[in-house]
Structures are given as structure tokens and as C-alpha cells.
């Protein structure tokens, strides 16, 4: 079986994979990084979102072999160096942007990618950017609010706690 090597959350890892092994399978089963989730089989839900070389990708639609040599960041690599929650993670907690938590890793990864390219997005830009991430629990209200807050914008005028 072919071998892949990549840096995941700053750590060099390698392993044997089949040609059909998906990046998400390699992360979850090969590396035990189960924070990246699988919510669909048609590349629609975004629960599997990770960063590859700084770009947001769906790891369910990426072959492990295709990211040989790449820099991969998953939800497990998003907290601050001291283990505390990053600004985006903290905003999700502060604004109740998650309920069951299943879509959450993908949402955080997608939000982080957005804020990197657009540090002060509008509500509409956030909603547009999250089109590829489905949440069944929150009705998106608090997710959008959390992303606005994470970008340093005032969310006090948005209804609710």
C-alpha cells in the first residue's frame, strides 16, 4: 500500500493508505483525530472541513494521497498554544453557537478560513460563506452571531442573549 506523509497540526505523520482512502478516514482512523466528522456522502454538509495548506477543504472529498506533503490543520489544532480556546472557538461558546456539536468543528474551520481572507465580514457574507456547512440544531442565528463577534464586531443589537 502506498505511504503518505503530511504535517497535521504541526506534527509530521505518515501512514499506509489505499488509493481510495479519504483524508477524513486517514485523520479519524489512521491518526485518531475524531474531531473531524462525516455528516454526508455527497460533499454537502461541511462537517469534515479542515484546512490544507491554509485553504478550507472538505476532507471527505479529498484523497489522503492527494495531500501528501501538505500542511493540514484540523479542529484539534485550533486552540491556542496554552490550550485555551481561540478567539473563534471562544465566540462560539460565548454566543451559544453550538448545540449537539456535530457540525461545530466544520463550522469553526470554515469561519476561520473566512476571517483570514475577510477579517470584518458582513452578516450576508458570513451566511454566504457558510453555505457549504449544514447545522440542524441552531437555526444558524447564534453561529452567524458568533462569527460576527469573533471578527470584533458589536453584536449587542442582535436579538437574544
Amino acid at each position: 500500500m502506498p505511504k503518505v506523509t503530511m504535517r497535521v497540526n504541526g506534527r509530521e505523520v505518515s501512514g499506509e493508505v489505499e488509493g481510495r482512502t479519504l483524508l477524513v478516514q486517514f485523520l479519524r482512523e489512521g491518526l485518531g483525530l475524531t474531531g473531524t466528522h462525516v455528516g454526508c456522502d455527497t460533499s454537502q454538509c461541511g462537517a469534515c472541513t479542515v484546512h490544507v495548506n491554509g485553504l478550507q477543504v472538505k476532507s471527505c472529498t479529498t484523497f489522503a494521497l492527494d495531500v501528501d506533503g501538505a500542511e493540514v490543520t484540523t479542529i484539534e489544532g485550533m486552540a491556542n498554544a496554552d490550550g485555551s480556546l481561540s478567539v473563534i472557538q471562544q465566540a462560539f461558546q460565548d454566543h451559544h453557537g453550538l448545540q449537539c456539536g456535530f457540525c461545530t468543528p466544520g463550522m469553526v474551520m470554515a469561519a476561520a478560513a473566512l476571517l483570514k481572507e475577510n477579517p470584518k465580514p458582513t452578516e450576508a457574507q458570513i451566511r454566504h460563506h457558510l453555505e457549504g456547512n449544514i447545522c440542524r440544531c441552531t437555526g444558524y442565528h447564534n453561529i452567524v452571531k458568533a462569527v460576527l463577534a469573533a471578527s470584533g464586531q458589536d453584536v449587542s443589537a442582535i436579538a437574544a442573549e
Partner: peptide, 23 residues
């Protein structure tokens, strides 16, 4: 009181434990 959820920390850091995470 609208206190923050304690379960969030594990979900936000990818350390929740769903059935498919168990091997």
C-alpha cells in the same frame, strides 16, 4: 442565569466522543 455551556469545550476542540469515534 445564562451561563455558558460546559459541554462546549470538548465539542469546540474536537474531543467529543460520538459513537463513531469509539473503536
Amino acid at each position: 442565569a445564562s451561563i455558558k455551556r460546559r459541554e462546549d469545550v470538548r465539542f469546540l476542540t474536537g474531543t467529543g466522543r460520538y459513537t463513531d469515534d469509539i473503536n
